[in-house]
Amino acid sequence: MIIIGVLLFVAACVQGSIGFGLGMLAAPIIALIRPDLLPGLILLLAFGFSIATWVRERGAVEWPVVGWSLVGRVPGSMLGAWAVVALPLVGLKIVLAVAVIVGTVSSIIGWRPGHGRRNSVAAGAVGGFLGTTTAIGGPPLALIMRSMPVERVRGTLSVCFVVGSAMSIGLLVSAGALGWEHIRVALIFAPVAIAGFLLSGLVNRYLDTKAVYRGSVAVSLVGAVAVILQAVGVV
């Protein structure tokens, strides 16, 4: 529990700094030690943080991206809810790890697909599926918005996450994959995560957000590889 608390503190700080990262950074490590908490714990915390980020960045939202991404989010989230119920735990771990690896590698190589209508719908669908199954729905949307200023990325992602997380939470509750235990644990960790989010204001002011992103990517990749090794029985 201490390890998860420290991890969520750091991940919440990254989320507040670059607009996403709570799931990408925390989910692989949590999958190694308490996979039963996923994706519910991250989704519940992300929902709260997304509201806070939206309030802070309310003047920097790319509304066309929000609208078209939510068109894709509906079927993607429904498919994700089915996968959580149908796939075994090992399968979900591998989906989580592959999502982290593909998302980070696509970002590292500098791919900039743009945020037009088609790409926004596609990113919303992929983000909906991954957000519901693994709580890592940010990278597809962040990828198509790479050309935007970081504050506009934070603002746009926050709105997408508020609606998308609420949708995923509702579907998982209906499917019986998110219950009171997830809510209880989310409430326990909420103060730690809030402290990390508040610290992100100082990070945005004094640290290079690109350096923060590169560091989070490195940790995420290590965690994703460890999840795959554990899933196949190597560790």
Results as ranks from 00 to 15, higher is better:
residue 102 V to S: 08
residue 165 S to C: 12
residue 196 G to C: 02
residue 36 D to T: 04
residue 7 L to Q: 03
residue 98 V to E: 08
residue 77 S to A: 09
residue 41 L to W: 04
residue 119 N to K: 11
residue 183 I to Q: 08
residue 32 L to R: 00
residue 98 V to G: 06
residue 69 S to Q: 02
residue 130 L to S: 10
residue 92 L to F: 08
residue 226 A to G: 09
residue 4 I to L: 13
residue 49 F to S: 07
residue 119 N to P: 05
residue 110 G to L: 04
residue 59 G to Q: 05
residue 138 G to S: 02
residue 10 V to E: 00
residue 91 G to D: 01
residue 96 L to K: 04
residue 90 V to N: 11
residue 78 M to P: 13
residue 27 A to M: 03
residue 230 Q to W: 09
residue 145 M to Q: 02
residue 38 L to H: 02
residue 215 G to P: 09
residue 166 A to S: 14
residue 158 S to Y: 10
residue 206 Y to K: 15
residue 120 S to W: 02
residue 184 R to P: 14
residue 169 I to R: 11
residue 145 M to N: 02
residue 223 G to D: 13
residue 85 V to H: 09
residue 9 F to W: 00
residue 101 I to W: 13
residue 76 G to H: 01
residue 206 Y to F: 13
residue 158 S to V: 07
residue 102 V to Q: 09
residue 166 A to W: 06
residue 234 V to C: 14
residue 36 D to Y: 03
residue 111 W to L: 10
residue 62 E to A: 15
residue 90 V to C: 11
residue 159 V to W: 05
residue 137 G to Y: 03
residue 167 M to L: 09
residue 51 I to D: 05
residue 142 A to Q: 07
residue 107 S to K: 15
residue 230 Q to F: 10
residue 208 D to V: 05
residue 155 G to Y: 08
residue 111 W to V: 09
residue 112 R to H: 11
residue 228 I to P: 11
residue 88 P to M: 06
residue 13 C to D: 11
residue 222 V to S: 10
residue 129 F to D: 13
residue 152 R to S: 15
residue 55 V to I: 12
residue 45 L to N: 05
residue 223 G to S: 11
residue 47 F to W: 08
residue 158 S to I: 07
residue 195 A to N: 01
residue 48 G to Y: 04
residue 104 T to A: 15
residue 159 V to K: 03
residue 32 L to A: 00
residue 211 A to K: 15
residue 109 I to H: 04
residue 92 L to D: 06
residue 188 I to A: 13
residue 173 V to A: 14
residue 45 L to C: 07
residue 167 M to E: 07
residue 56 R to F: 13
residue 139 P to F: 01
residue 216 S to K: 01
residue 20 F to Y: 07
residue 65 V to P: 01
residue 79 L to H: 07
residue 89 L to Y: 12
residue 24 M to E: 12
residue 154 R to F: 07
residue 196 G to K: 01
residue 180 W to S: 15
residue 154 R to T: 07
residue 129 F to C: 10
residue 5 G to D: 02
residue 228 I to A: 08
residue 27 A to F: 01
residue 228 I to R: 10
residue 104 T to G: 15
residue 230 Q to C: 08
residue 162 V to S: 04
residue 111 W to Y: 09
residue 192 V to Q: 01
residue 124 G to D: 04
residue 176 G to T: 05
residue 98 V to N: 07
residue 183 I to D: 10
residue 187 L to M: 11
residue 95 V to K: 13
residue 143 L to K: 04
residue 14 V to S: 00
residue 208 D to N: 08
residue 190 A to L: 13
residue 76 G to P: 01
residue 200 S to G: 10
residue 39 P to K: 02
residue 231 A to V: 06
residue 162 V to G: 06
residue 222 V to A: 13
